[in-house]
């Protein structure tokens, strides 16, 4: 790595080393290791309860690890100032919009609180970002007046506004209809291409994962089982991974 980049449009690399975390007696992360290159779209797949959300919370510094470390652009997040130097954004599984504020205020919050832009400029950016996720014109609504999928998309708009170097998406398409899911997936990929932002996407959505990922990691019970390009992951014959990737509904046959 050469001189530290101050350009926030550029993605940062992430390295997770031997990450362990327990809640009480339950060991949720059991030595997770992987690294993500700058500008990569990295998709984490795994069954419910395997520790994906907990892992994302560690990467963005909301949860202290029991052991192990996380490096953002080769700097441990334990060091002070890392999050000031590289802005990270997260789209929460629930959206986590501030319910007492309008959607527009939510989306513009980062800019307004840090006084990065004058109010008219913020309004313009907010409208632009909302339009980009297919939510034009909902600025004045309250989050409670949006559907689950709309909240998710508003949360994505809020993450985009800060022009982060790394975006963590926690199940960005989980509450969306197939068409909106494709729109959001394309938006994630487009953003990644246009600004080079590193994206870590947690998802159960196989179409999304194989559609946008540069690399996929499969996590099971707090451990990374496999990492590779979509094609490599498909070729892996490990039963646990095949079961997860190929699970289908099958109607009970009437005999």
């Amino acid at each position: 790595m050469s001189a530290p980049s101050t350009n926030h449009h550029r993605g940062v690399g992430v390295e997770v080393r031997g990450l362990r975390k327990s809640f009480g007696k339950q060991e949720v992360l059991k030595g997770v290791e992987f690294s993500v290159s700058p500008g990569e779209v990295f998709v984490l797949m795994g069954p419910s309860g395997s520790g994906k959300s907990v892992l994302l919370r560690h990467i963005i510094g909301l949860e202290p690890p029991d052991a192990g470390d996380i490096l953002i652009a080769n700097k441990s997040i334990q060091e002070p100032g890392v999050f000031d130097e590289h802005h990270l954004a997260m789209v929460f599984q629930s959206g986590a919009l501030l319910n007492s504020m309008t959607v527009g205020e939510n989306v513009g919050l980062y800019l307004a609180e840090h006084r990065l832009k004058p109010p008219e400029e913020i309004n313009r950016i907010v409208s632009e970002k909302l339009a980009a996720v297919g939510l034009a014109g909902v600025e004045d609504k309250l989050p409670a007046e949006l559907s689950g999928g709309m909240k998710k998309r508003a949360a994505i708009a809020r993450a985009l506004v800060s022009e982060p170097a790394l975006i963590l998406y926690d199940e960005p398409t989980s509450e969306l209809d197939p068409v909106s899911a494709v729109v959001v997936g394309e938006e994630i990929a487009r953003l990644n291409q246009s600004s080079g932002v590193t994206s870590i996407v947690v998802s159960h959505d196989r179409d999304l994962a194989f559609g946008i990922a540069d690399r996929i990691a499969v996590i099971l019970e707090g451990k990374i089982l496999a990492i590779g390009s979509p094609a490599e992951i498909r070729r892996i014959e490990e039963p646990a991974i095949q079961d997860f990737l190929n699970a289908k509904f099958s109607r009970p046959k009437s005999s």
Binding site: D84, M90, F92, A96, L97, N99
Partner: peptide, 11 residues
Amino acid sequence: QEIDALRTMNI
């Protein structure tokens, strides 16, 4: 998780 969201925005 609204407070978590604030923290991710450095607020």
